[in-house]
C-alpha cells in the first residue's frame, strides 16, 4: 500500500524573528514555546502513522545549522528515566529536539544573534542526509542491507519565519535543483513574516506545497492537513496550492530582488543596472549597448538610475578592470 516516508524538517530558529512573532500586537501572536509544542506533536504524528517512517530534524540558527535529531542515529540512551506514561519513541524525539535546541541557543552569544540565518546549510544538510539514506552505498562498512523498494519517499518540510536572504539566492536555487534530481519534494510552511520568493519557487519547482499561515494559532492543523499526507496521498486530497509564483531573482551586484534585470550573455549573471563589466566573468560589454540600455531606462527610472550610477564603483568588478 503506501510506502513509508521520510521527512526532514528544517526549523527556522531565528531568535529575533521569534521574538517579533510572539509580540502581542500581531493578529495571532505565536510564541516559540507553543510553536515547538505543536511541531513536536506533528513529528510524533509522523512517527506514529507508520512504523517504518523516519524523521530528521535540522535547525537553522543564526550563522549556523545543526542536525537536531535523526532516526538513524538514535541518541545515546542516557535519559533512561523515561516517563512510563509516554510512548518511548515520542519521548526520545521530544526530549532530544528540545535539549538540542536549548544547547545550541545557549551557545549563541549576542553578537551572533544578528548573523544571517543558516537556512541554506540546513537545507543542504537535509539533502545530503536524504542522499545518504536513499543511496545506501557499499563503501560504508555497515551491514545494513536496505532493499531499495522499501526506501522511504523523502521530503523536506521547511518551517520558515525569516524573510528572504537575497545573498543565498544561488545556493538555494542549487539546492532546489538537487532536490529535483533526488526527487525530493520541498514543502514550505511560512509561519511568520512576508512571503519569501525563493521558498515559493522551491515548493513550486519540486512539486511541494507552499502554505502561508494566516491563522497562526492553527499551526498544527495546517501541518496535519497539508504536510502530513505523503505525496502519493496528496493527489487525492485538496491540499492548498500556491496562488501566484513569483519568478523574481536576486541580482549579483547588490543582492536586490528584481523583476527586470540585465543579464550577461556569456555567464548569465543578473545585474540590476547596466554595468560596463561583468563582475563574474569579467566580460566587457559594448559601449553602445550600455548607452542604449541607459537611455531606454532613464526616463522612467531616473532616481534608480542615479543611484545605480553612484553605487557602481562599489561593485567588486570595477577596481580590477584595468588589468
Amino acid at each position: 500500500m503506501d510506502k513509508s516516508s521520510h521527512i526532514s524538517v528544517v526549523l527556522d530558529l531565528s531568535p529575533s524573528q521569534w521574538h517579533l512573532s510572539s509580540l502581542p500586537h500581531n493578529p495571532y501572536p505565536l510564541s516559540f514555546k507553543s510553536f515547538l509544542s505543536q511541531v513536536l506533536a506533528f513529528l510524533n504524528l509522523h512517527i506514529a502513522s507508520k512504523h517504518e517512517n523516519t524523521l530528521a530534524v535540522f535547525g537553522a540558527f543564526p550563522g549556523k545549522s545543526v542536525m537536531l535529531y535523526s532516526s538513524s542515529n538514535p541518541a545515546s540512551d542516557s535519559s533512561d528515566s523515561g516517563n512510563p506514561n509516554i510512548y518511548r519513541p515520542f519521548e526520545i524525539v521530544d526530549s532530544r529536539v528540545v535539549t538540542r535546541i536549548e544547547e545550541e541557543l545557549e551557545l549563541i552569544d549576542d553578537k551572533e544573534e544578528e548573523a544571517p540565518i543558516g537556512l541554506v546549510g540546513a537545507l543542504t544538510k537535509a539533502l545530503c542526509y536524504i542522499n545518504r539514506i536513499t543511496h545506501p552505498t557499499t563503501s560504508t562498512q555497515s551491514t545494513i542491507v536496505e532493499d531499495p523498494a522499501i526506501l522511504p519517499d523523502p521530503r523536506i518540510l521547511i518551517l520558515s519565519v525569516s524573510p528572504d536572504l537575497s545573498t543565498s539566492y544561488i545556493p538555494i536555487m542549487n539546492s532546489i535543483f538537487s532536490a529535483q534530481k533526488l526527487k525530493v519534494i520541498i514543502d514550505v510552511c511560512k509561519v511568520y513574516g512576508p512571503n519569501t520568493v525563493f521558498l515559493e519557487q522551491a515548493a513550486h519547482l519540486t512539486g511541494g506545497s507552499y502554505v502561508y499561515l494566516e491563522r497562526r494559532d492553527a499551526l498544527l492543523q495546517h501541518l496535519v492537513m497539508s504536510h502530513l499526507p505523503s505525496p502519493a496521498l496528496r493527489k487525492l486530497m485538496a491540499v492548498p496550492t500556491q496562488e501566484k509564483i513569483d519568478f523574481r531573482a536576486a541580482c549579483f551586484c547588490h543582492k536586490n530582488i528584481i523583476d527586470v534585470g540585465f543579464v550577461c550573455s556569456v555567464c548569465l549573471s543578473i545585474f540590476c543596472a547596466p554595468v560596463p563589466v561583468c563582475s563574474t566573468c569579467r566580460t566587457k560589454f559594448p559601449i553602445k549597448t550600455l548607452q542604449r540600455l541607459n537611455a531606454s531606462r532613464a526616463p522612467a527610472l531616473r532616481p534608480v538610475n542615479g543611484a545605480a550610477k553612484t553605487s557602481a564603483p562599489s561593485t567588486p568588478s570595477l577596481p580590477s578592470t584595468p588589468r
Partner: peptide, 18 residues
Amino acid sequence: ATNPAADLMVMGFPVRLP
C-alpha cells in the same frame, strides 16, 4: 579589446498565474 560576442541583455522575470 572588447569581446564582440558578449552583450548585456535585458530580461524580465515573470509572475506565474495559477
